[in-house]
Write a protein that binds this DNA or RNA. Structure first.
Length: 374
RNA sequence: GGAGGGGUAGCGAAGAGGCUAAACGCGGCAGACUGUAAAUCUGCUCCCCCUGGGUUCGGCGGUUCGAAACCGUCCCCCUCCA
């Protein structure tokens, strides 16, 4: 088995989970946040730096790498990991999300998706089998089923039809994957806001017995209450002994809340993207370091952070880097934001292990002025 | 001394009688960003008691119902000739 999930502890106070994902490329503690390296690169960071700010598990993208540089070049380099000199654990997304995010140029059919390449304009077709074949070539430890991620508030009829197709696609992905032991294939639960569809999707996927289950189609514009409600519902039905992966979530508040609802894995571009746009994640909220108010501020980004950026650089300097367009600014902030989430998740795990996660959540909400609605 | 060209908001640069408080770009100030078409996108950026009012387009003086635009004059800048 390429991956094995060990559930270590369930917080007696909250029910939140703590565990370890054992992979052939190393162990990963959960709950875990995975930085995103879409194009075989966590933007602005070197592999050594990624190791410092991650738990040695990152995500890369099938859609992008298939189109550029293409599977031939990946094969030539021996797979994505040797290609990018990443010797730790890797997860590849299936390309399913791009079907959603590039929706204005796609056509979804039973066989797969027809879409136009966002760079060349070429018309291309991607099937569940293609996605799995490509992911085999990419060589990640964990790979994802090819799904459709419709808008959260799609009508019930469309959503039902979409979920049923996603289930059929999951089956096809599993068949295409075969008995391969070198990679673990996760199924993805869809269904938008409809609990019966979510439940049906989950049950069907569990029936297929995947080594892990992801929740897709959340954090796509719905309200916090809607997301919390769905997570609370699903957590009661997901298999205990399999990792639960909430896709595309990375705001500190959502990580903390997701863990409360039994989530083990998260990925998101938010920390790295916001970093490039000049916003730092800090204790108590966010800090838009490019704002004028920090022009002469000699304090670190986050006085409570011990990352190398916060240990030696002032807000004043980092703001200057952004205002003058220096690449170092993007790098420093990316490093800090990912480190910030790594530390947050470390504290989360400690709180779970010591059976005080409910207290932790309350304290977090208070510190971040979030209304406790749970 | 002579001949041309030009002076527009923080900068660059359109505009050549009313549709112009003045395009556009840069800079500046904010906001957004959640399985990355994203070092991106959106808004604001003369002043004020701001769903209205007040002052602008080198200075001054004219023409006109009306001027950044037309005329006179002065100041300054650039190119060429002597």
């Amino acid at each position: 088995m390429s991956m094995e999930f060990e559930l270590q502890h369930i917080c007696t106070q909250s029910g939140a989970r703590c565990g370890v994902i054992h992979t052939k490329s190393g162990d990963v503690p959960t709950p875990v946040f995975m930085p995103v390296g879409t194009q075989a690169s966590v933007k602005t960071l070197s592999p050594d730096e990624i190791k410092q700010v991650s738990e040695n598990l990152i995500l890369a993208n099938t859609y992008h790498l298939w189109l550029q540089p293409g599977t031939d070049i990946i094969v030539l380099n021996g797979g994505v990991k040797p290609f990018m000199r990443w010797d730790k654990a890797l997860l590849t997304d299936s390309g399913g999300f791009q079907v959603f995010s590039l929706s204005h140029i796609r056509k979804i059919e039973e066989s797969g998706v027809t879409f136009r390449h966002h760079l060349s304009g070429a018309t291309l077709h991607l099937t569940p089998e293609d996605s799995i074949d490509i992911q085999h070539v990419l060589g990640a430890d964990i790979i994802m089923a090819f799904d459709e991620c419709p808008p959260f508030h799609s009508g019930y009829d469309y959503m039902k039809q979409s979920v049923e197709r996603t289930i059929r696609w999951a089956k096809r992905c599993q068949e295409a994957h075969g008995n391969s032991d070198s990679q673990s294939l996760f199924g993805i639960v869809q269904g938008g806001p409809f609990k019966d569809l979510r439940k049906m999707c989950l049950d069907e996927l569990v029936e297929m017995d995947f080594p892990g289950y992801a929740i897709g189609g959340l954090s796509v514009g719905e309200t916090k209450a809607e997301m919390d409600d769905m997570l609370a519902y699903l957590s009661g039905h997901m298999p205990q002994h399999k990792p639960r992966y909430l896709m595309g979530v990375g705001a500190p508040r959502d990580l903390v809340t997701g863990v409360l609802h039994g989530i083990d894995m998260f990925d998101c571009v938010l920390p790295s993207r916001n970093a490039r746009h000049g916003t730092a994640m800090v204790h108590g909220g966010k800090l838009v370091v490019k704002n004028k108010t920090y022009e002469a501020d000699l304090s670190p980004l986050d006085p409570h952070c011990d990352c190398f950026v916060c240990r030696q650089f002032t807000r004043s300097y980092i703001r200057h880097l952004f205002k003058s367009g220096e690449i170092l600014g993007l790098r420093l902030l990316t490093y800090h934001n990912l480190y910030f989430l790594k530390q947050l998740m470390k504290e989360v795990r400690q709180a779970i292990l010591s059976d005080r996660y409910s207290d932790f959540v309350q304290d977090f909400y208070a510190a971040n002025e979030i209304e406790a609605s749970l």
